[in-house]
Design a protein around this nucleic acid. Sequence first.
DNA 1: GAGTTTGAAACT
DNA 2: CAGTTTCAAACTC
Length: 621
Amino acid sequence: MDVVSPELNSLLPDEIMDTEAIEDVPHSQADGTTVQSEPSDDASVPMETDAPVVSENVTLCSDAILPKPAQAMTTSVVTGTSVTTSGLQKLTAPFTISPANRQIILNKVASSQASEAAKAAGNPPQVIKQEGQKLLVTAIGKSGQPIVLQLPHTGSKPGVSQTAGDTKSQTPQFKVVTLGTRSELKPVVGNQMTTLQTQQLKTVQNIKPLQSVAVGGVGGSQFKTIIPLATQPNVQQIQVPGSRFHYVRLVTATTASSAGQPSGPSTSSIQTAKPMVVSTGAVRMSVPVVPAQTMKQVAPKPLTSGTQVVTTTQTQQRLIMPATPLPQIQPNFTNLPPGTVLTPAPGGGNVGYAVVPAQYVTQIQQPPFVTLASSSGFSASTGIQTQARLPLNGPNKFGFICLLYCLYCDCFANGEFCNNCNCNNCFNNLEHETERLKAIKTCLDRNPEAFKPKIGKGKEGESDRRHSKGCNCKRSGCLKNYCECYEAKIMCSSICKCIGCKNFEESPERKTLMHLADAAEVRVQQQTAAKTKLSSQISDLLMRTTPVLSSGGGRLPYTFVTKEVLEATCECLLEQAKKAEQTHQPQTEAERMILEEFGHCLMRIISSAGKAKADCASINC
DNA sequence: GAGTTTGAAACT
DNA sequence: CAGTTTCAAACTC
Ligand SMILES: [Zn+2]
Ligand SMILES: [Zn+2]
Ligand SMILES: [Zn+2]
Ligand SMILES: [Zn+2]
């Protein structure tokens, strides 16, 4: 999955929801509508808490609440995305966030399966297609071997992203096939497809069977998850072993536990089972979040005894968890199996659902509803990993931490993989997909808006542009780039909590600043124009004087310092004088500046003359 | 380029 | 919600 880049995110919001997207999804309902979690629908959908059911286009939160009708219909956004083939590699968009900003998450297929599949597969077509239970990607990797994605043995997979790992999947060389990134989908949905996007789409477009789960929040903030479906949408697949409900795990299972882990608590610490039931208007999903390895150690409990249903928001989203206070439960969210993603609903914070890697889901025979055990290495209140910090030797951006604190790394915060930045021990890359997904989840848990642009898009005109949270400046007067409002070139609004704000319409300071900025810009332009003119005069002169030089080696000063050159030079000097005056430079400084400029002009003239002479010399020879 | 200032987000 | 900590970027010299 990928988080849509800010730019994309801002572009997609509403448009992405259009019906076209739905049409592209084969498994969408015939009428093109999606199942929404409207109250009325809730009753109609037989969902039991124990049986995690995910039907096609399931909207976890009722979209009906959304402001726009168009959004209500939405659902299908292919997430996931990037097919990494030898030629196409999309590093950005590590995870996908729905238009309204929500995210999606996916699971990975066990690497072993993938590798085996890869061996078995020949050279399939060039499109990703589903054959029975396998998803074959015909693209050839660097190794020359076809990439094969194997779906969970049972069949369909509502997996969101698939990473086809070759035998080396644990190494940086594994191929990752993600199904649909927002950026890639966007083209499909909208009309604005860029060339790049088109290219990226090529490979992914054919993955039609999709299952989309949209978790809607109130008021337009909803999470959407689109999961590739195998053949038929089978609800309740999650709980029945061997059923079609699977998530595709893209990265090798071993990855989580091995190499990449910095200090480890991330994977090994997952020892408790956390039954989670997310009910949406139409669907309720119960996902025992427990590492496959530890499943047996967990004593299954009746859902009723140790769980509680938490209903958040007006929609029917609910989380069914052990009846422990939320604060205590939260830490466990971080201990989900590698690849598990939680998608908190906006606003509520405790609403959402968990997507568990297929490997874990399939192994769950009896959803163990157990009391969650506390895990070490995680903050009790936030669930953020605290003990895995890497020693900071350098300026980091620092890899692992950077994943934990998305704000510390712009790349990660922007939903991109680190690339060409100076991160140390960076984990924000494909090689650490597991950690990365976890980090994404953590960030979203903490702040559902984490990957959302802070500045409103301003749909109807620019008046709408404003900081989503407002600034909190204390000393900058909101007239320096320290202020996010000012940095975005927008004025502070009522939601800002700044002190001593000078960044408002009538602010004299702001006006002065604006004028100064404008004046500076004008000066730069004038100066540039003057220099350009001088250069052209000189070169022009050069052309005209060449004959003179070649004929008899006249005296260069008189040859080059013509009326035009003099005028151009004077213009430069005058510009410099103006500049000095506008910046209130003392006379001595002004004189120095002008003389300096004069020196520059002379140098240009001399340089030109020298060149001309040299050229003549070479010509004569 | 080194050092300082600043405010967002995390954390308590 | 308020105070503190941490960080990277903005800014200054
Ligand atoms: Zn980084
Ligand atoms: Zn401000
Ligand atoms: Zn502001
Ligand atoms: Zn302000």
